[in-house]
Design a protein around this nucleic acid. Structure first.
Lengths: 198, 198
DNA sequence: CGAAGATACGGAGCACCGCTCCGGTCGTCA
DNA sequence: TGACGACCGGAGCGGTGCTCCGTATCTTCG
């Protein structure tokens, strides 16, 4: 049973706007022109603002499922393998990095949302951060990750790297290499293909 | 003997514009309104564009000495201490991070300039990168830094972290912590206050 | 010293942006 | 079917980056 709002055109316009926004944001990034989104949806600019009072509200509606998946992924990684907590943690970090790079400008939106508690995006971002916190803690308790870092710093590192990679054209290879350096820096023991000291 | 341009008002206006730009960029970041800069300089918007055809040209004029200092610092670190190449390299990285954070939005401008060879800022940024490359190579040849990273990746990491810290309010403490993680990830052996495996 | 010529100045103007606000339309329910 | 109220659309405001040209100013030469 789909959420049955009072009027039909409301739901219709909402769907049109979301579809148009997905298009526009895929093309132009999270800073896509709102007027352009309204145009694509064949809807007045006023209608867009009534449905989504702020840009963050619109982003939240679009990215909702993405963040949920990231949270689920964390829970999943937390449950299934009792061993290898470092690996699980790093896997999740890579997922976060990948998620942050799905749209041009997303890293900026995420950082802004984390900093601004009044942002509509804040909830999703904070939930994601909390889930990652558990993964981090487990890896730290297993003695596999530096004990002197917290979730906030880890997220900041990953989003920062994701941003830099985006600026550089968004090559997945570069992202992997930078994540490798970060992983090496976070781990207590080298885990990946890193030069060994003899 | 100061560069004697044909007309006097030209030099006068140039100075006024640079002073105004420094003010505005310190206040509003590298995306400061150009109209506002012209207003502060008590000069027409056309005059601003004639002196500095693009925003990058204006930034270049302002940041020129900053980038030069970063390059000199690299040369200096390369010469003075024959030992401790890792330390010299990491010191320079911290300087770069500090420099990238002097203005809001500077990390973005730097990354954009490195990617776009036609940018007026590209020269300064590329020169800085090249100087850092020597420091990196020396540390690698001494076996103190992972051999599988290049300057480009290192710069990308540092600027990415600087950006993230800026987004978060720009706390120097956070910057230091993130740089520490990056250093640990780049170094072949732990050098800083990092948890030791027993 | 004064006038001619070159050169730089200023800002009006264009197309865009985010965002507000209100008159008219249209769906819904009695 | 009619009335009511929620919803829509877009004009309008103040801002942006950038261009272009009539005009004022500086310099140089007679």
């Amino acid at each position: 049973m789909p959420e049955t709002t009072a009027r039909a055109d409301v739901r219709r316009n909402r769907e049109r706007l979301l579809a148009a926004a997905r298009e526009a944001i895929a093309a132009d990034g999270t800073e896509a022109s709102l007027r352009d989104i309204a145009r694509r949806a064949e809807v007045g600019i006023g209608t867009l603002y009534r449905h989504f009072p702020t840009r963050e509200a619109l982003l939240e509606a679009i990215l909702d499922t993405n963040f949920d998946m990231l949270r689920e992924r964390a829970d999943q990684l937390l449950d299934s393998p009792p061993g290898a907590p470092l690996e699980a943690f790093l896997t999740w970090l890579a997922d976060v990095a990948a998620g942050a790079r799905t749209y041009q400008g997303l890293p900026h939106s995420i950082m802004a949302a984390l900093a601004d508690e009044t942002s509509e995006l804040h909830g999703s971002c904070a939930a994601m951060r909390a889930s990652g916190g558990q993964l981090l803690r487990r890896a730290q308790e297993a003695g596999q990750v530096r004990a002197d870092v917290n979730v906030y710093e880890v997220i900041t590192i990953v989003i920062g790297l994701a941003w830099a990679v985006q600026q550089d054209g968004g090559s997945p290879e570069l992202m992997a290499r930078l994540l490798d350096v970060a992983a090496y820096g976070l781990a207590v023991q080298p885990v990946v293909a890193a030069p060994q000291v003899t």
